[in-house]
Design a protein around this nucleic acid. Structure first.
Lengths: 191, 191
DNA sequence: ATATTTGCCTAACGAACGTTAGTTTGTGAG
DNA sequence: CTCACAAACTAACGTTCGTTAGGCAAATAT
């Protein structure tokens, strides 16, 4: 990927995140780049190509994280905290892509869509595995694994809706708060 | 709203939930109803009208719930459990609308969009108020209120992505599980 | 029996869509 | 100086989009 292509990709994502993939036209993207719509096709072979690259790029970034975490040994709590931390970092450091990745992947078609869903399921399975580890170790409640993994991911993914780079919370702080919340809940320990 | 209009609305929502508002054409909706695109305009004055009705209808349903909960006195935990229960019920009992409401509200324009955002903020404030009550009562952790409310809502809203009416979990069971999760977290009590 | 309304139709509008073909322009290498 | 290549351009393609105008038939009200 050339420098220029990366540049155009970034600008495209900046436009796509605003109104969503389906509601954004190729002409919208071109306008943001002060170029003609047709010129985009020197770099990308279709509008969906931009979506595909964005989604799979994010999926890869996340996949690498969870694989690392599950390979290196930690206890389950450490594992989960690390996984959440990495996830939050990837999202907040790629906020535009993250929003497109989470919200617009449904607009993929054909084989791309199938492949994406496979990747997504694999990632979810990684989280389920961590939960299972915790249950085995006897430190997590015997909760429905799938349910827990989905609930964790949903609360983590939603940050793209409200996170602002100039906000009061850093990526690290968010990850810590979220981990605390997920692990210990809202209720005070009555110890 | 006439019987027929309600019927067409429901069918429209069933189509819209699949590919999303922006990616669904008026012709798609008409096809699902075995009628001509133009005929829809006997009932709705625009495509966005359908979105608007759907979003505000859901917002109203949720608003009614949270107002009730906050009026009647409960302790904070009861309050939160009831609010979550109502929220989950509204979502699962209107699954198509719920998905559109959560995912596609951004496609509203002008005054509708502004009004919707106001409603949404008010609803979030309702949840924040419950969290505040719990902090005042000394039973919730002194966590960032806005953060907690957003995290709660995100995990609750995400159920529209995976809830199936014929699934193994009833709406009640989901609400209970979610409430437990949110209140007590994943970690076992070390009491 | 007649008038009104409801619900859908056919036909078509102008605008916007994603994309292609073919061409020009600028830049760096031989 | 020329050649090669990348990156942009102009112009336009066929398609689909949301929507409107106007009419027709059946149901409902008078």
């Amino acid at each position: 990927m050339t420098e220029r292509k990366r540049e155009i990709l970034a600008a495209s994502q900046n436009v796509l995140k605003e109104k969503g993939y389906a509601a954004t036209s190729v002409r919208d993207i071109a306008k943001a780049l002060s170029m003609e719509p047709a010129s985009l096709y020197s770099h990308f072979k279709s509008k969906e190509d931009i979506l595909k690259i964005t989604c799979f790029d994010m999926a890869d970034k996340l996949e690498i994280g969870i694989a690392e975490v599950n390979d290196i040994y930690f206890n389950a709590e450490e594992k989960l905290r690390t996984a959440i931390n990495l996830h939050v970092k990837v999202l907040t450091q790629n906020l535009n892509s993250a929003m497109i990745f989470i919200r617009d992947w449904r607009n993929l078609t054909g084989k791309s869509l199938d492949q994406f869903i496979l990747k997504r399921n694999a990632y979810e399975a990684g989280f389920r595995e961590i939960v299972q580890t915790g249950i085995n170790e006897g430190i997590f409640n015997e909760t429905d694994k799938k349910f827990a993994a989905l609930t964790i991911l949903s609360s983590v993914n939603w940050i793209v809706e409200w996170y602002k780079e100039d906000g009061s919370l850093s990526s690290e702080q968010i990850a810590t708060k979220l981990s605390d919340f997920i692990l210990s809940g809202l209720k005070k320990d009555t110890v």
